[in-house]
Design a protein around this nucleic acid. Sequence first.
DNA 1: CTGCATAAGTTTCTCCTGTAAACATGGAGG
DNA 2: CCTCCATGTTTACAGGAGAAACTTATGCAG
Lengths: 202, 202
Amino acid sequence: MSETKDRPYHHGDLRRALINTALDILATDQNWAFTLREVARRTGVSHAAPYKHFRDREMLLRELARIGFVRLGESLTDAMSLDQPSTRAQFVAAAQACIGFACQNPGLYRLMFSSDADKTIDPPLHDAAMKTFGILLDLLERGQRNRSFRLVAVSALAAASWAQVHGLAMLAISNQLLEEKVGSAPVPAALDVLLDGMCCTN
Amino acid sequence: MSETKDRPYHHGDLRRALINTALDILATDQNWAFTLREVARRTGVSHAAPYKHFRDREMLLRELARIGFVRLGESLTDAMSLDQPSTRAQFVAAAQACIGFACQNPGLYRLMFSSDADKTIDPPLHDAAMKTFGILLDLLERGQRNRSFRLVAVSALAAASWAQVHGLAMLAISNQLLEEKVGSAPVPAALDVLLDGMCCTN
DNA sequence: CTGCATAAGTTTCTCCTGTAAACATGGAGG
DNA sequence: CCTCCATGTTTACAGGAGAAACTTATGCAG
């Protein structure tokens, strides 16, 4: 009895409702200037109501970012569970999933890596980010064990591939991967170059 | 007679003064919430004065971004003019210059790639970005000519290296290159991995 | 030199945001 | 049944964006 009544004084689960509204707007309106009041408005509550659930605007932003990391992690896991002929192919699938996620949720993705989402002061957010990063690490370690990836320090592979994928994602959502600059299929092309450096040559 | 008088009614070169103030604050206050009024205040003019030189806040932001690309281009050119034993070493120098630039001007760097700096509606900004990107392209083409870099499509090398460097820069200024994740020297490590894929193996 | 058009400032005003404080409501426990 | 408290609402205030109307100096026509 908490859903869709004609606004009983107590909402039922306003916290979650606010988060969903915010995620909705973020998904709908490409680069929206995030506004607590707008979130409250569209959720149908007074502009001060959110403060009962979030100390301030930034706290909601960090929660959204955290959810973003969780969802990104799910996308990665999904992409990797499709079976692929090689670890290399699996890597490509995961990378494309990440970039696809960014392109489908540009606002959220940007938020996840913005300075508003300060991971140093928010343990849950930090943990979510680390956990998602861990998915990449696992893949790399697995690839090393089965001799797909070179046996250099896994942290080097991690830095390179994370930077590469994140860079492609950011450039893609900034609309900077123009054909005149980087050809018509920059993502697979770039990943191939990187993978040639990561994979065993024999 | 345009500098440092005791505020004649007409400033002399307010446009430039505003830009400099903004760049100053951006350089000083790591993640500052950009405010036209603050810029006006610190420049010593009324809050409406900037509107005589910039249609709106975004227009000033785009001009700042443009200057950012010009400066980044200078940093890259400088770094590449130091002579290096190999094109590969030159690439590393340029990459580190770019990441260094980002770390020393995080606010500006973020701005350059933010959605506020919409390159599709600002030809000067777009041109500045393209010109800086051209420096990278030149280096890659030169590397291909002297057989340092593989003869794959130069746009693929460009996409890969640009994404890599930009990704490292963004992660660095977001304070996400934590040792626990990517080791103690992620930048050279990541670049090495990438370069192993870009360079000729023999 | 006089006088005016205009560029470049300033003031004032409206609307919006974040956030705090005081107030209201209704459901849960004594 | 009454009272407490979490969760709403209203009201208030400080700032920011930007428009409009006003002011000042400057350069140019005569």
